[in-house]
Nucleic acid binder design. Sequence first.
DNA 1: CGGCTTTTTGAGACGCGTCAATGACCGTGG
DNA 2: CCACGGTCATTGACGCGTCTCAAAAAGCCG
Lengths: 248, 248
Amino acid sequence: MSVNLAHSETISSLKVARRPWPVIVGEAAKTAPSGDDFAALETVGARMTFGRNETIFSEGDCAKYCYRLVSGSVRLCKLLADGRRQISDFFLPGDFFGYADFDTYALSAEAVTGVVVTRYARNQVEAVSESDSRFRRRLGQLLHERFNAAQLHLVMLGRYTVKERISSFLIQMAERLDPGAGSADEIELPMSRLDIADYLGLTIETVCRAISDLKRADVIAVPSIHRIVLRKPSVLRDLVEGGEHLLA
Amino acid sequence: MSVNLAHSETISSLKVARRPWPVIVGEAAKTAPSGDDFAALETVGARMTFGRNETIFSEGDCAKYCYRLVSGSVRLCKLLADGRRQISDFFLPGDFFGYADFDTYALSAEAVTGVVVTRYARNQVEAVSESDSRFRRRLGQLLHERFNAAQLHLVMLGRYTVKERISSFLIQMAERLDPGAGSADEIELPMSRLDIADYLGLTIETVCRAISDLKRADVIAVPSIHRIVLRKPSVLRDLVEGGEHLLA
DNA sequence: CGGCTTTTTGAGACGCGTCAATGACCGTGG
DNA sequence: CCACGGTCATTGACGCGTCTCAAAAAGCCG
């Protein structure tokens, strides 16, 4: 099983990233969408920065804070004693995370790229939630969304083939990364192949091979390593749905 | 992939089970635990019965109701077009389900055995939740528990070997089925091997083989088909901790 | 340019799925 | 009461797909 070497600099937390990576600042430092349900928290948030592969919080830590991602991207994962890793979710700018836990975090959150977050004390979030029913509903809705996403993830890990997993992942990322309407046809994947593998329950080699297959079939193009062009999104969709053959 | 033939009698809903199966009435018709947080709903619930393999609600149905399981057991599952199935959760007496959805149910709930439930209108549950902050917190806690369980399930499907999955499943069921203290050493599994397979992301044959292996190693005994004796729980625990302590 | 990490590709092993046959259990009806 | 048919569970033989191991290629940064 793949050895995990992601934790070279897991200690300090306010350190600036050595090399901020695609912190897409100019173009896409997406601020909160206009009708922002988090306005109530605006005043109590603290802005923070994490470097690539830095840990934002660890499984078992006292869950004092929750976070809103401003820029970059974050993985939520669980590490087994022998190095096996499962990523349960990726977060993108605008996502709110770290609130779906009890006293301690159930999983670790790590910066996939250089990251900027706003950090909120949980007791303050809870106070606002207690008094503001609109905010509370919004928070509940977010939790439900994460829950439903986890259910789909479950089906994928339990029953999808490799091709279905990769296709489903690409479509899903295209939808999430596209701010506006239907999924964009070109996406910038912030995470490494190993991250993708650990999200899909595969090995990095299998992920590479599946991507190469799609490239060979001209369903996607890969101009640079973190950039993917969906040339035939419909084929990707078919690969996921029929749950069947379509790719040579 | 295994053909699913579970839906022979999915239509009527108030029908009594043809043959109630292990509806453990005398011994374990567990009523709500003494400090019952659902007292507030007591008056608005309707008692209902479902037969084995009957559908309680289907994916996509308008989510008007939620349920509390009184006796028997229920599976929550998703069916793909080609018959593949993933079970995301089993419910046991006392469990509350069907509330973690939006307007429509995201998954289907089916009776694994003959089942008795109390059904509540969601708008009433929401009304109580809105006015009673204690009840609301309890409901949120339940959702968090299901969410954390789903996260562990995710790790299992993504990263566990067959032996680890079976061991983890047995331990988990022993803990959930045991009303009192530490896990009982003999458990009554209400679900079929196919259900177990679809929960663990395996085939029925693989599940059988793994169980036979454990039997052969004298780690468990199988006096009858739905009954399992954990002869060496510690070995089971070791088998799952090829990774880690992953049990809530 | 030279040393690193990450990605890609290849060859081979092995675990799990597939297909098929047998056995166990159970309710039904002769 | 036993024979029968249906469902579910178990076991075996075999093939395929994914993992493992290994090495080369491609980026990345000093």
